[in-house]
Amino acid sequence: MAEYNTIRTAATGTRAAQIDEGLRAHMNKVYGTMSVGMLLTALAAWALSGLAVSDVPTPYQIGAEKWLTSLGQTLYLSPLKWVVMFAPLAFVFGFSAMVNKMSAATAQLVFYAFATVMGISLSSIFLIYTSTSIGQVFLITSIAFAGLSLYGYTTKKDLSAMGTFLIMGVIGLLVAMVVNIFLQSAAITFAVSILGVLIFAGLTAYDTQKIKTTYVQYAQSGDSEWLGKAAIMGALNLYLDFINMFMFLLQLFGNRQ
């Protein structure tokens, strides 16, 4: 009996080690996919903002010796601006609904396409804020995100109870932002920005722990295709947490041109 228990303990330890190794690979894929998406977003935003602004005078001046090109006028002044603004949201809903029908490779390509579309939507920040403040806020967001994600990965506290509360907070933020489109209240904008930072900070820790626990729960199934798609959805969730935290911090601390 003692020999049997020893063998069983050794087998359990070996399986646990395999799960730990698989978890590290899974998290590396999540962060790697997210990082590529962030790079695509930054490149798309920067490239498009460069094409939208010119030093050649046009009817639409946006700053000292800065004018909108015909492309900039089309993107930011025509009804197309609403398409550019809401395209990422439509992308997220469509992706979430269709991901189970996709292969992991297709899901990854769709995520990268979404990240590029998000960059197009965010390109206007380069026209509103100085490049220095964008860089500074990005650095602050990166440090905060790394700390929060590390906390979510390492903490023994169950963060699942936060999920419903945080999602309700996101819905409340969306409602307040839509209402403020018509009210144009500086006080509401400030309050929404502060709450947005806090909510997406919490979601960063929550989503990181959820990615970890989901992998541990389903690792024994051996379904590599499902785990591959789970990694991409995890990358999408963390990507959205980062982008939203960055945007709310930029509204609070960004220096306008």
Rank of each mutant, 00 (worst) to 15 (best):
Arg256His: 07
Asp207Pro: 03
Phe91Arg: 07
Leu183Arg: 08
Thr69Pro: 05
Phe138Glu: 00
Ile194Leu: 15
Asp55Ile: 02
Leu166Phe: 03
Phe145Thr: 09
Phe190Tyr: 14
Tyr239Gln: 02
Gln184Asn: 14
Phe248Ser: 00
Met247Arg: 11
Leu198Asn: 01
Ala219Val: 05
Phe248Ala: 01
Ile243Lys: 04
Val30His: 05
Phe86Glu: 02
Ala186Tyr: 02
Met118Gly: 03
Met247Lys: 02
Leu23Asn: 04
Tyr206Ser: 01
His26Val: 04
Ala144Arg: 07
Arg24Pro: 00
His26Trp: 02
Thr213Asp: 15
Leu109Arg: 15
Ala17Glu: 10
Phe248Pro: 00
Leu238Phe: 06
Gln209Ser: 06
Ala90Gln: 06
Tyr206Asp: 00
Val216Ile: 15
Gly72Met: 12
Phe91Lys: 09
Thr58Gln: 06
Leu252Asp: 03
Ser133His: 03
Val30Arg: 01
Ser35Phe: 15
Ser78Asp: 12
Leu249Asp: 11
Gly94Val: 02
Val53Met: 14
Ser49Lys: 04
Gln61Phe: 10
Ala201Trp: 03
Ala16Asp: 13
Val175Gln: 09
Gly119Lys: 08
Leu240Asp: 07
Phe246Met: 11
Gly94Gln: 07
Ala17Val: 05
Glu225Phe: 02
Arg24Cys: 00
Pro57Val: 06
Leu183Ile: 14
Leu159Ala: 08
Arg24Ala: 07
Ile128Tyr: 12
Tyr112Glu: 08
Leu122Thr: 08
Asp55His: 15
Val30Pro: 06
Leu75His: 04
Lys210Val: 09
Leu75Gly: 01
Leu71Pro: 08
Ser54Gln: 09
Leu23Ser: 05
Ile232Ala: 02
Ala176Ile: 09
Trp67Ser: 08
Thr213Arg: 15
Phe253Trp: 10
Gln18Thr: 11
Val83Asn: 01
Ala230Ser: 14
Asn100Thr: 10
Asp55Tyr: 09
Gly234Glu: 07
Gly228Leu: 07
Trp82Glu: 08
Ser123Asn: 04
Gly32Thr: 06
Ile125Asp: 12
Phe138Asp: 01
Leu77Ile: 09
Gly135Gln: 08
Leu252Gln: 04
Ala144Asn: 10
Phe246Asp: 08
Ala230Leu: 11
Ser221His: 12
Leu68Met: 11
Ala187Asp: 13
Ala235Gly: 13
Tyr215Lys: 12
Val53Asp: 13
Met247Trp: 11
Glu225Leu: 03
Val56Arg: 13
Ile7Met: 14
Phe138Asn: 00
Leu68Thr: 12
Tyr218Ser: 04
Ile19Val: 14
Lys66Gly: 05
Tyr129Glu: 02
Ala2Glu: 15
Ala25Gly: 10
Ala105Phe: 08
Ala45Ser: 14
Tyr112Asp: 05
Leu148Val: 09
Met162Thr: 03
Ala219Arg: 03
Gly22Pro: 10
Leu77Arg: 13
Lys156Gly: 13
Arg8Ala: 13
Leu150Trp: 12
Phe145Ala: 13
Ala105Cys: 00
Gln184Asp: 13
Ala176Pro: 10
Ser124Gln: 12
Lys212Ala: 05
Ala161Asn: 08
Leu198Gln: 01
Ala17Asn: 04
Ile125Phe: 11
Ile120Lys: 01
Tyr4Met: 08
Ala104Asn: 03
Gly13Pro: 00
Tyr4Asp: 15
Glu225His: 01
Thr69Asp: 04
Met233Leu: 15
Val92Pro: 07
Leu80Asp: 06
Met162Ile: 04
Gln61Ser: 10
